[in-house]
Design a protein around this nucleic acid. Structure first.
Lengths: 234, 234
DNA sequence: TTCTGTGACCAATGTATGATTGGTTAGACC
DNA sequence: GGTCTAACCAATCATACATTGGTCACAGAA
């Protein structure tokens, strides 16, 4: 006679029932922490192993969530007040970042073409001119960042600006350490110069689709320059 | 003879020149910290007061940025590791949030149609069925959130998922406190049921454009329900 | 007087240390 | 074979203390 499977299932089920009864009894509000496993298994009179198996069930069901060092919490997940950039950046790759940029930034450019003030456009033009006289790649990239952010700012939509900042922070974290060293400064015929001018021009002309298309084209250019870098690294 | 003004201006200007010379000499990369004020004023041989006045100039110029307890840094601002949701939510409005959702979420649905696994689709279908038997608005909204997030997860793009979470957190913060109280539960003919089914169906059919269009239509519906709420509140 | 420089103080942040917590493994025990 | 316990691990929290930008009072010079 094989007794093991049933017994095990019963034990685990018993722990699960005990745990659910406990949760119903204390009736904690969402996002509140429940006692550590070592205390809980003592209270419920079950082994830590069985308790953990029961917790796994509840976690998969989305009723609790756990994290090392923090504890076990009621609710669906750590829907934080702040979003950790590195946490996202650590589990992604340049291709996904590029995909997200291609979705978001052209539409931001479109909104910018609709809402940009004359001051916004003047600021973009200024940054554009600055990029041309940058003497180092570092300077150039700093100004390039600034220009793209000015465009996001010109959308006059705080949410889009926030999304852009998140995306930008992720991008920087992903390409962290991979710095351009070849060539002392951007060449005069660098594709970005013409791209940027088209984008800013379309925004100034209130050409919504033109701005979006120009931005999309620019990002595709950037993407195509990114691929050989990856291949060379392998 | 009044000598004070000129002397003061000269002193401050001298400190500013010294500081700029120092910055040019060390040539620190962006986002790097420079010595604390107490050390710097000793190095440059100027009083801390004059040094701070010079720092104010550079800060207004956007070349440095400071924060109590942290220090003084090169660059344009605290391009944070974390993004504060409330900071964005506090300076925006439901219309801007909706605009951002209309830009991002349809494209996320498109990616989901391309990359969703069978498990993803099964999970969506499960949530979909759950929303139909929800007995309270709170339950329904929780499940609605879950479904939308499952779609974002099915895009298999960590960055898009991250952007969705940010957007979702902002949305929740903006509509904070405005809870639906009319009606004990969602009506059986609630438009979202059909909308959601179309979206999930298109994803299951690998219909990229269909998924995006269905999501866009759904959000437009949500948007149109939002406007009368605003008008009624005024 | 009027202004500047100095020093001290404050609140916010960084840093270091130890305790706590979920996750894991090895071995005793049945 | 299977379970339970204990110990260990890495991540996190909690606490105390050092550091830093921001501010103010006061002595001293012009």
């Amino acid at each position: 006679m094989v007794k093991a499977p049933d017994m095990i299932e019963n034990d685990e089920h018993a722990a699960l029932v005990q745990l659910q009864a406990y949760l119903a009894q204390v009736d904690l509000p969402s996002d509140s922490r429940l006692p550590p496993e070592r205390e809980l298994c003592e209270k419920l009179g079950v082994s830590r192993g069985d308790l953990r198996k029961a917790l796994v069930v509840l976690e998969k069901d989305g009723r609790i969530w756990r994290h090392v060092g923090k504890g076990t919490f009621i609710g669906r997940g750590p829907i934080g007040e702040t979003v950790a950039i590195s946490e996202i950046a650590g589990r992604t790759n340049p291709a996904d970042v590029m995909r997200a940029r291609l979705i978001v930034e052209p539409e931001i450019a479109r909104e910018a073409a609709l809402h940009a003030t004359l001051d916004d456009i003047a600021a973009m033009r200024h940054s554009l001119a600055q990029t041309r006289i940058a003497t180092t790649w570092r300077q150039y990239e700093s100004l390039d960042n600034l220009l793209h952010r000015q465009i996001a700012q010109a959308s006059r939509n705080t949410v889009l600006l926030g999304l852009f900042d998140v995306l930008n922070a992720i991008r920087r974290a992903v390409v962290w350490g991979r710095l351009r060293s070849d060539g002392a400064r951007p060449p005069a015929d660098h594709h970005s110069f013409a791209d940027h001018e088209r984008i800013v021009g379309a925004i100034a002309d209130r050409d919504l689709s033109g701005a979006a298309t120009a931005m999309r084209h620019h990002l595709h250019q950037v993407e195509s320059r990114l691929i050989p870098l990856r291949q060379a690294a392998e």
